Computed example of a mutant assay.
Amino acid sequence: MAAAANGDDRPAARASAVPALRSPDAGFARDMAVHHQQAVEMSFIVRDRTQDEPVRTLAYDIANTQANQRGMLLGWLDLWGLPKVLADEPAMSWMGDGGDGGDGHSGHGGHSGHGAVQPGGALMPGMATKEELARLGTAQGRDAEVLYLQLMTDHHKGGVAMARGCAKLCTTPAERELAQGMVDAQQAELTLMADMLAKRGSAPRG
């Protein structure tokens, strides 16, 4: 009897559990879609600025993975009937006290100067500035490789902080699973990028 009741309750709960407009689930989907879009952009830029195969392969993998994940996040917002952009929503507000740069998650608070201003006026952790993107777009060879790896390292640190926030705060199981997958994959890529920078005589910023 109890088993039958549990079996009935779970689908009903899932059917009614559409996230609220300003929930962590919706806020993460909106913010991470913006965050991912810049990673895709930077990855396409560097593929045109170097012939180094390890960097080009990494950039291709990041672009493909994050474009696919971005599609999932935007698809959930559509499914939930929620807007993809809220003009009056400060970036990271869904994280509460942790939404002002990722402090306490990845030591990323020191990188707030590398943030991009979002519609709400807040800084999205890890995002490159327009000036940094312009520099990447004019760099060549090893200079482009190093700058890309440094910018993407900052970007991943911010992304990991955001994804950890969703893994903790989001209530949609599939979204929490995706967020934890982002944490695991991007931490592995952070290790890889540190090694790639070392081989090029450089290191992550800050």
Rank of each mutant, 00 (worst) to 15 (best):
H105Y: 09
G110F: 07
A33V: 02
R49M: 12
L74S: 02
L147D: 00
F44P: 00
G113N: 05
Q69I: 03
D97Y: 01
L151T: 01
L79M: 03
P83S: 06
S106A: 11
G107S: 06
Y60L: 13
Q66P: 10
M124P: 04
G104A: 02
L151Y: 03
D52T: 14
S93R: 14
L133P: 00
T57N: 08
S112T: 12
G102F: 00
P54D: 08
M42W: 01
R135M: 14
D100T: 11
H35D: 11
R135K: 14
D154N: 14
G102L: 05
G96S: 07
D100N: 10
G121Q: 06
V146C: 11
Q118V: 15
E145Y: 03
K130R: 11
L79W: 00
G102C: 07
R70F: 00
T153Q: 04
E53F: 08
E89W: 02
R49W: 10
V46L: 10
G115L: 00
G71S: 06
G110H: 15
V55G: 01
A144C: 10
G121K: 04
E131P: 00
Q66E: 13
G121Y: 05
E131M: 03
G99V: 01
G96W: 04
G115S: 06
V117D: 12
L133T: 06
V117T: 15
V46G: 13
S112I: 10
D88K: 12
G96C: 07
L73N: 03
Y60W: 13
A39M: 02
A91C: 14
S106I: 02
M152Q: 15
K130G: 13
G104N: 03
Q140R: 15
H35A: 06
A59S: 09
V85F: 08
D48F: 07
P54W: 13
H155R: 11
L79R: 06
G75Q: 04
H35R: 09
S106M: 14
Q118K: 09
Q150C: 06
E145I: 01
A63Y: 05
N64Q: 14
A128M: 09
A63T: 08
L58N: 00
A116G: 09
Q51R: 14
H156V: 08
T138V: 13
Q140P: 04
